[in-house]
Amino acid sequence: MSYCVHCGVELAVSERDCPLCGTEVVNPRCAWERPEQLPYPETVDVKDAHIDRRYARQLVAMVMAVPALIVLLVDWVDGGGLRWSPYVVGALVLIYCWVVVPLLFKLSRPYAYVAVDFISLGAYLLLIAAMTGGLNWFVQLVLPLLALCGAALSGAILALRRLEWPLLDRMALCCAILGIFLLLLEVLISLYAGVPVRLAWSIYATIPLDVIALMMLFVERNKRMKQEIRKRLFL
């Protein structure tokens, strides 16, 4: 049985020092010994991750819905049809997808954000194409272009997220992806322009990229060279 000399309270067997004032209890007759059973176990409850964003999402959606409705209404009353308001509403939806989704939604994988961004952009461009009668242009150029950009970006994310790989390897893969992207881009543009596919500028861009990628792979695998570079370039 020990008492706190400062507070005058008796300390339960579980307490090594006074929980009220921190004074260590020195009882020469009976040193503190950790009892077999403490009043509370050692394991600590951890809180769930935040999903408080729900309120913020609803609020933003509501705040953005107000101007959208006003624009639609004004356009309708003014001209008896939807002439320009869809552009505005589409732009608002696009802003929501591009800004609010990354900030306030917690998607499990980054690819989901890429998908949301590209699908929303595609949908907006489709809306514009449909309203201006340019569906051809959309199908032949925009759609493949978006798919290509989305794929390249996903590839780059995939490469950068492999944290277990050496950094230089990941960079090399990114360079290679960029090179392939440029090649395919030129093919696409040639197809759309209706000229026979002959790679020109993309080759000049891709070759140096591939060389850089190979150099990175080589340096990564060459211990002494890595050491040397590190020695010269350290900050």
Partner: peptide
């Protein structure tokens, strides 16, 4: 509070959930 109870002549035993 607990010191005041002690001064009032009460016997107070104190326990906590601190990790020992």
């Amino acid at each position: 509070v607990f010191s005041a109870l002690v001064r009032d002549g009460l016997h107070v035993v104190v326990e906590s959930n601190r990790r020992m």
